[in-house]
Design a protein around this nucleic acid. Structure first.
Length: 677
RNA sequence: GGCGGGAUAGCUCAGCUGGUUAGAGCGCAUGAUUCAUAAUCAUGAGGUCCGGGGUUCAAGUCCCCGUCCCGCUACCA
């Protein structure tokens, strides 16, 4: 793309069922903010849009759990998220939300256009329906007993205890989470976007046209395209969301992944009446900042939607980051294993830039990275305090001390002065190149080089010594030091806007622009600076220990929760129990089921017969370990086909909280067929 | 099981289409310095570039076979 006329930067819409944590920041919002601020500083026409993603089933479930309405949930988290972003200086031009009226209208119109132009296919299918509540049930709205681990609070899409992915029809004894009624199967109609029809276009656009995309993004797209695309449903039976704008679609809403990316468009509409030039003019460069979990939506699905609609531009790049871990463990909202932005802002007032710095310096640009509090402390103390804060402080203090705060005029420059100043344009070039190619870690390092240069210059020039022998020379030295300081204020602005402002205020520097970066004459002789203050302060061990203790408390709480045994299930009668025919059996043969990770095909002698049982234990036992072992089998369980093999019965296993499976077997070898009661 | 990404100094990472003694920041050691938040500056020690084969005059870089980590996907009674 030749020099674009304008830029449109989007940042993944945070899902409004929880606050934002450092993983979101490092992956998406800090990079997008740095990029946007940089473009603004270059005087580009750029807008940055974001907003809360407020629809979808998890929000309705959370609302149910807390006994409030979905609107209450999204109002709560929208406010927290929006404030937290503002607190960290994540400077969107608009932070909207998908429950806004403009978005309803935009998403409806978008759907309607595709519908009218016959871009969808309609399909009917059988789905669970709650006769009492009179509505279809999303997968998450059906609870029942997990067929695998026996957890009686499994959801229709997943058992959270054993991690199994389920279909609603898999659940034993399914119940509606809304009314508790037993759901019935009923026919329902949905609309699908036939992604397969866009495969050729996507191949050409991405695989041929965007080889410059990051390896993780490009590779993931190629993987999907090579697997072959399937039609995807764009509607759901749910009462929370944007109604499908078609006659006879009562009780149906747009599927959340369909309406969420349209949120970028709606936000732009809310921001400016000129929104169309950002979305429909080929000379606009659109960039999506996202995490790696969103690659397929932003590179495959959303572009297909835009293409189906017609008239819209496509993203020029999608610089997705990997994930950030916290203290060697995966960040998890449900396990409360996170550093929450709103809490950080409370606990570390005035240290917004420290977090911005650390998360950028340690951003997961090429692979998953780890955030540790020790690293946070080290980067603050050894880099921000020692290098950046220290240089600015010593330069300003010296000017204050020797010249009462008035920048002295430079005399004739020595070769060394010139060589030092000549470094700066090269730093600028490297900084810009890295920013424009989304290498923010590297770019930050370049920005810090200005401060390193300053420290070296002062150490080599030794004004505190020279002042005794050649006071005239010191004027030149401190003039040069002041020029470097002004350059720092410009260079760090995209990364650390608060600090940049502090330097400007402290040194009374107005009118610095990016165009001046690298130049030597930014501050005229005679300019009066203010009183130097420290930009950063050291972070003591005790502060870090407190944060680690907080995490340790979370870990303990999580463990206590896991160790706690499941509550007892409802009572059953003796007759119920006697319906189950449980026998001792012996494994006579075992082999892994091809093309599966968890399945073993076991041939067992039940005493009654020799039969085949397929069991999901391959991650815990090898085939060899199972042969000859006595096991306990529920023999009158209805048969079921697994991977084309009919499984007749279930091997009883014990499972601990971590999901580890252990075979249950008789204490002493017993005859096969022995009845257990 | 299929696919994608990653593996380079103690830590976090650069290393473009293969080409002189593999680099940076932090940490560490030694020395210098004292304007500065014991901050700074210089020098140095640290690397079978995950393992094993191969192509080549030449491989961290290309090919093949493995191992480990992350993700997507299938499967999960």
């Amino acid at each position: 793309m030749k020099e674009p006329k304008r830029y449109l930067v989007t940042s993944a819409l945070p899902y409004a069922n929880g606050p934002v944590h450092i993983g979101h920041l490092a992956g998406v919002y800090i990079p997008s903010d740095i990029y946007t601020r940089y473009l603004r500083l270059r005087g580009k026409d750029v807008i940055s849009v974001c907003g809360s993603d407020e629809h979808g089933v998890p929000i309705t479930i959370k609302a149910k759990q807390e006994g409030v309405s979905p609107q209450d949930i999204v109002d709560k988290y929208h406010a927290i998220i929006k404030n937290a972003f503002k607190g960290l200086g994540i400077d969107f031009d608009i932070y909207s939300r998908t429950s806004s009226p403009v978005h309803y209208q935009t998403a409806s119109d978008f759907f309607r256009t595709l519908y009218d132009n016959e871009k969808f296919i309609e399909q009917t299918s059988q789905q669970y329906f709650d006769p009492e509540a009179n509505q279809f049930l999303a997968d998450r709205y059906i609870t029942g007993t997990c067929p695998r681990c026996g957890n009686d609070r499994a959801y229709g899409d997943q058992c959270e205890k054993c991690g199994s992915t389920l279909n609603p029809t898999d659940l034993i004894d399914p119940k509606s989470a809304i009314s508790g009624a037993v759901p019935v199967m009923k026919e329902t109609k949905h609309w699908y976007l036939p992604l397969d029809q866009y495969e050729a276009f996507l191949r050409q656009w991405i695989l041929d046209g965007h080889k410059e995309w990051k390896p993780n993004v490009y590779g993931q797209c190629k993987s999907w395209l090579d697997m072959g695309l399937q039609p995807r449903a764009v509607s759901r039976d749910l009462d929370w969301g944007i109604p499908v704008p078609v006659d006879g679609a009562e009780g149906k809403v747009l599927y959340v992944w369909f309406d969420a990316p349209i949120g970028y468009i709606s936000a732009t509409k809310e921001l400016t009446p000129e929104w169309e030039k950002y979305w429909k003019d080929e000379e606009t460069k659109m960039v999506h900042f996202i995490g790696k979990d969103n690659i397929v939506f932003h590179c495959i699905v959303f572009p297909s939607m835009l293409r189906a609609h017609g008239g819209y531009i496509l993203p020029e790049n999608v610089p997705a980051n990997e994930f950030l871990n916290l203290e060697n463990d995966k960040i998890s909202t449900s396990r409360n294993w996170a550093v929450w932005l709103h809490e950080y802002l409370d606990e570390f007032p005035g240290k917004e830039d420290v977090l911005r710095y650390v998360l950028c310096a340690n951003a997961p640009e090429t692979k998953d990275n780890d955030f540790t509090w020790k690293d946070f402390q080290a980067r603050n103390n050894n880099e921000l305090v020692a290098v950046l804060g220290n240089f600015v402080n010593r330069a300003l203090v010296l000017i204050q001390k020797y010249y009462e705060g008035v920048v002295p005029a430079a005399g004739s420059l020595t070769d060394y002065d010139r060589a030092t100043l000549a470094e700066m344009p090269a730093y600028r070039k490297a900084l810009e190149e890295n920013l424009e190619t989304y290498h923010f870690r590297e770019a930050l390092k370049e920005a810090m080089n200005f401060a390193r240069l300053g420290n070296k210059y002062l150490a080599d020039s030794e004004p505190w010594k020279v002042i005794k022998t050649d006071p005239e020379r010191v004027k030149t030295i401190l003039n040069v030091a002041m020029q470097i300081t002004a350059n720092i204020a410009i260079a760090i602005e995209p990364f650390m806007p608060f600090t940049a402002v502090k330097i400007r205020q402290m040194a009374c520097l107005d009118g610095l622009t990016w165009e001046g970066l690298g130049a030597a004459g930014l501050v005229p002789a005679g300019h009066a600076i203010g009183t130097p203050e420290l930009l950063f302060e050291k972070i003591e061990d005790s502060v870090i220990e407190a944060q680690l203790a907080k995490l340790e408390a979370t870990r303990q709480a999580n463990m206590a929760r896991e160790v706690k045994a499941e509550p007892q299930k409802p009572l059953v009668s003796y007759d119920d129990f006697m319906k189950m025919d449980i026998r001792v059996a012996k494994v006579v043969a075992a082999e892994p089921v091809p093309k599966t990770k968890k399945l073993l095909k076991l041939t067992v002698d039940t005493g009654i017969d020799t039969r085949v049982i397929v069991s999901g234990i391959a991650e815990h036992y090898t085939a060899g370990q199972m042969v000859g072992k006595q096991v306990v089998v529920l023999v009158n369980l209805a048969p079921r086909d697994l991977k084309g093999i009919t499984s007749e019965g279930m091997i009883l296993m014990a499972q601990d909280a971590s999901g580890k499976l252990v075979v249950v077997k008789p204490e002493d070898e017993t005859a096969s067929g022995s009845v257990i009661s």
